[in-house]
Every structure is written in C-alpha cells, then in structure tokens.
Amino acid sequence: MAFSRDEILEQVTEVMVDALGVDDDEVTLEATLMGDLGAESIDFLDVVFRLEKAFDIKIAREELFPADALMNDPSLVGEDQKLTEQGLALLKEKMPHTDLTEFEKNPDINKLGDLFTVGSIVNFVAARVS
C-alpha cells in the first residue's frame, strides 16, 4: 500500500496519541518518545504493534529500536558509557532513518533515548512502505 508522507505522519500521530495518551498537538516531528512523550519500555512495544497494524508491515524489534543490542557489548560501549567508534558505526548502520549528527559529538548511551523522535519513526515507516 502506498502512503504519502502526510498520511504517514497522520497515522504515526494517531499511534502516538493512542499508545502514549498524549494530545495530538504534542506529537511534533522533533518530539522524543521518552523525554517529551513519556514513553516507557512497554510503550515502545505498544508503538511497534500499532505501527505494524496501521501500515500492515512487520517490524523486528531491534530494527526500529536497535539500542538494546548495543548496550551490553563492551566492544561497542566504552567504560565511559560512550559508544566506541565501532558502536557508533553499527548504530548508524542500524538507524539509517535517524539523524545522528548531534549525537555523534557526544555518543553517551544514556542519551540514546533522545534519538527516538516522532520524525525518525516517520522516516522509518516511509522507508518501509515506499
């Protein structure tokens, strides 16, 4: 099925409103799921389930939210809690739908949560349904 970018944004907004109990005017492209919209870990699965239904796609968990796979590997995360070069390369490969320019300057894994914005999800879906 083909969706225009506006249609995708509209559906993603509806998913966020239903899954996170937020108002639709809070769902901006820049809004972060955890910081701005208050998502917890179970909400990420809820979002994935709803996106799968809304767009009739299958999403492997690590595909949309690959951070968990990185966390526990010492070759990817240094002792300073920052991603190593290798870790950063892997993250870039796994998250092509997300702009990592800012994150690269200080790749602190505790800030990974901020990478999941409404915009990155719209990009992800757009890449999958086109």
Partner: peptide
C-alpha cells in the same frame, strides 16, 4: 488477542 510477539 490483537498481537502476540516474543516479548509481549
């Protein structure tokens, strides 16, 4: 059941 996945 609407969705059942490995995690949830």
């Amino acid at each position: 059941i609407e969705t059942v996945a490995p995690e949830a």
